[in-house]
Design a protein around this nucleic acid. Structure first.
Lengths: 192, 192
DNA sequence: TTTAGTATTTGAATGTCACTCATAATTTTT
DNA sequence: AAAAATTATGAGTGACATTCAAATACTAAA
């Protein structure tokens, strides 16, 4: 297994998927950009879906790492959640191509939606629930909220905001502002 | 334009999409189930994506109607939002085939993700922001939260929970319980 | 009721890929 | 340096989505 060639193909795929979208991207074009023959792609990946999922799994590693390190530095659970929210949105703003891949293209993969039991996806979500459990144990957060449900609520909210921003051509929405608003709603609620 | 035939094709498509998924569904099979020739499908819809989007646009009409009526009966904004949350999750539980179509299959359509400026999707989200604005104007909710962001936060949270439930084979998660939790978090926040 | 015109329907044919596999090139082992 | 093993190639295959020339079903004027 030539990992150099494998990486070349993945890098080419990131470019082509970001430019053409997952569906319109041709495997032949990915291979061409990677400087290999079409068939070679299938020696390193079982199919087109597998290329996309591999990109996800590998790109998530530094993102998860970075996020975990950031939260480690925060003392309170509230600060940890705030850091997660701003960190996620900063990533979306600073790496729009990758964000588009992870938020939009990935979900067009049938294999990802169904069947896929992504460890990296779960790991990312679990950063939220761990911070939340910490907050419950030290008395910062309500005990009656289930961490597994909470992580979905927060991730769902973040994801929706991110996707909207990524899709909007103008991108006039201020993500910093959105982060503040999410923090307010989720942490303190909307009741006056 | 024969609306009877159009409806027959749409009904057949709902069945086939729900059974096989959007991707694996064959236009030929939809046509067969509708009792028409393959080509006829293309007299009523421009392509396979258009069939799916048409299902969405048309199935959303009674859902939106029903939701609006339910909220109309509620007096406070808090009650309206609670009704939206439970209503959405009830729909997911009671019409799982339709939920799967709207939550999962629809997002595999490239044309839907990009390009699509769904009026019905916007209309559904706007039910949330209208209730929220009402709550702000009568002093129930904080003034500093932007309704447009709030609707995305709530819908994103709901959608994530719904998708998870739809995807989980066991479906052991109690959606009633999830509704309560979402209400608690979004309405009152998580701070102890 | 024919007939000519118009609208609708048909399904075989076309084009576009994802994916395969017999062959070739390269590397490793002897 | 020859044989064996590994890796790479790209023309070929099959599976659809979509098209379109021909057939069929209407409509209405004579």
């Amino acid at each position: 297994m030539d990992t150099v060639k494998r990486t070349k193909i993945l890098q080419a795929a990131i470019k082509v998927f970001a430019r053409d979208g997952f569906f319109n991207a041709k495997v032949e074009e990915i291979a061409r950009q990677a400087g290999v023959a079409t068939g070679t792609t299938y020696l390193y990946f079982t199919n087109k879906d597998d290329i996309l999922i591999s990109i996800f799994e590998e790109e998530m590693v530094p993102i998860i790492d970075n996020m975990k390190n950031n939260l480690l530095r925060k003392k309170t659970a509230r600060e940890k959640l705030e850091a997660f929210i701003t960190g996620h949105l900063t990533m979306v703003r600073e790496k729009p191509d990758m964000a588009q891949l992870l938020e939009l293209e990935l979900r067009q993969s049938s294999k990802f939606i169904h069947g896929y039991n992504g460890t990296k996806y779960k790991e990312y979500l679990n950063i939220i629930s761990e911070a939340f459990i910490f907050g419950q144990s030290n008395g910062e957060f309500k005990k009656e909220i289930h961490p597994t449900i909470f992580k979905q609520i927060l991730f769902g909210a973040l994801d929706q905001i991110s996707m909207n921003w990524t899709l909007s051509k103008s991108r006039k929405i201020d993500l910093e502002d959105s982060a503040d608003q999410i923090i307010k709603v989720i942490l303190d609620g909307i009741a006056a």
